[in-house]
Simulated scan of single mutants.
Amino acid sequence: MSESRPRKSLARRILRFVLISCLLLILTPPLLTLVYAVVPPVSTLMVGRYAQGLWVDRQWRSLDEISPSLVRAVITSEDSAFCSHKGVDWDALQSQINRLNAGKDVRGASTISMQLAKNLFLWGDRSFIRKALELPLAMMLDLMLTKRRIMELYLNIAEWGEGIFGAEAAAQAWFGKPAAKLTQAEASRLATALPNPFLRNPAKPGRGHARLARTNESRVAQAGNIFSCVLRRP
């Protein structure tokens, strides 16, 4: 009888710890999102580099201080349905699930909101677990933040090379100019470098990268009104 009581007490403490930990895991992202609505955040990749004592270059800029050309190029390249979905592009996601079921390569269906969720709250390695976690987090971001704020956050924490985070640092590093002065050609090079920022050099793009950038420019010119939720003027 005396031995069972300590065991029950230990079990209660463990259960309490588990419940509190789960509650914190659930509450932390929305609480941080409330903070990030007004305060510039850091990404998990930036935190990792800081923890290792590695160099980080991130110079925060408001969306009004970033060239609209970059906004257009990134939306066109990364998430053309950005203004119309609620964090997750379910049609694109279903298309990639169908490709997976057919044994074809999956090209990804990450929206800008999903990429932001990954950068703010999750880890970088690819896995189905991480992808599954991105979905509710992306919908939460889209519910709690405006599209302009989501884009502003994304463009300030996206990685554009070793230790280079955000549009301003990228524009300075690759083109020697502020993000506000980027041309459409330069913006397209930056946007098409995002899927592989360590192997694609926006300043001196390889043949394949240059082709992607030219295609992006053409698509931006023909994109129509897909940027209306972000840009104040066409």
Rank of each mutant, 00 (worst) to 15 (best):
M1A: 14
M1H: 12
P6A: 05
K8M: 11
S9R: 14
S21P: 05
C22P: 01
L27E: 04
L31E: 01
L32K: 06
T33V: 14
L34Q: 03
V42W: 10
S43Q: 07
T44C: 05
T44G: 10
R49L: 15
Y50D: 01
Y50Q: 05
Y50M: 10
W60Y: 13
S67R: 00
S69T: 01
V71G: 00
I75P: 00
I75S: 00
S77K: 00
C83S: 11
H85S: 08
W90I: 15
A92C: 04
L93A: 14
Q96K: 07
G108P: 08
A109D: 05
T111W: 01
I112Q: 07
M114P: 09
M114K: 11
L120N: 07
W123V: 13
D125C: 01
S127V: 07
I129E: 06
I129V: 15
R130N: 06
E134Q: 08
L137M: 14
L141D: 03
L143S: 12
K147Y: 10
R148S: 12
M151A: 03
N156C: 04
F165I: 09
E168I: 00
A170F: 02
A179P: 02
K181Y: 04
K181L: 13
A193K: 00
L194F: 00
P195Q: 13
L199T: 13
R200V: 10
G208D: 15
T215W: 02
G224Q: 05
G224Y: 03
S228G: 08
V230Y: 04
L231N: 03
L231Q: 07
P234V: 03
P234Q: 08
P234T: 08
